[in-house]
Design a protein around this nucleic acid. Structure first.
Lengths: 140, 140
DNA sequence: TGAATTTAGTTTCCAAGTCAATTAAATTCT
DNA sequence: AGAATTTAATTGACTTGGAAACTAAATTCA
């Protein structure tokens, strides 16, 4: 006796994809004004904490595959938002650092992004929003 | 007084992206054996209920932008999984139908996909899994 | 009716992502 | 030490996706 998995909406993977798509759309729309894509925002947000990260560590945290990260970083370097620095211990590694321009840009961007996040949290309610983060953390 | 939004993990958009990425990875790995991508599975899963859908309706439900859907359907047609049929009322519209081959393939695929979904639900526990679907539906 | 507008789907051109191969540095092993 | 292996990042060839333009059919309206 296997219970039929009826509508596609009941698959966790579908529900996640749908919500992710909706949230990403509005996020991308906000970032468009700043001329930045979602992944670039993540990178700058992560770097702006001042942590010294290698490309590999960054790829992991920023949810980007290494080849895609390399190419995106190329673009961000030419935009002047970040710069590469070869690690002194291990010359295979590359540390990525945010530039002053990148930081300046992040101040403006962050306001917008936090506003969007706040809207989502309000839409769900504090309790549900917290619960959501909670449950999602069990999936990654 | 604005509370600082500290680590990136606390952004709803980040948590969603991370979970979505993790789930999609394992889903894609399973589908790879069947030579099918996630979006193609969604299309076939949706069509296999027997509903008669236009490209536009399908794009909406399958979470695919119309141009991407057109191209993916081209490939699926040449694989013999689906076929197009111009709608008789409105000749601008195209109905997409699953073929016998597509249905046959879906039987095998669905077993794998349902197994993955079941694993996720077990990992979270029934209650949390249900709660997750619940909360996510408020975002799409 | 028939010109103007809207709608559905596709195509085009280009930007971005993937997989596999490559380069260069570090580490392991004999 | 130095040959063989592993690791970090990038690159190259190819595929896919997106925005905007386009085609064809339907609808509106003068």
């Amino acid at each position: 006796m296997s219970e039929p998995q009826n509508p596609i909406e009941d698959y966790v993977s579908y529900a996640l994809a749908a919500a992710h798509r909706a949230v990403n759309r509005s996020l991308a729309a906000r970032l468009k004004k700043h001329g930045v894509q979602i992944e670039a925002w993540r990178i700058m947000e992560i770097l702006d904490t001042g942590r010294r990260l290698t490309m590999g560590e960054l790829a992991e945290i920023a949810l980007i595959n290494p080849p895609a990260l390399s190419k995106l970083v190329d673009r961000m370097v030419s935009n002047g938002f970040v710069h590469r620095q070869s690690a002194q211990n291990d010359h295979r590694q590359v540390n990525l650092l945010i530039t002053a321009l990148g930081q300046k840009r992040m101040i403006q961007i962050r306001a917008d992004i936090q506003d969007q996040d706040k809207q989502i949290v309000e839409q769900l309610g504090d309790e549900q929003a917290q619960k959501l983060l909670d449950i999602l953390s069990g999936l990654s």
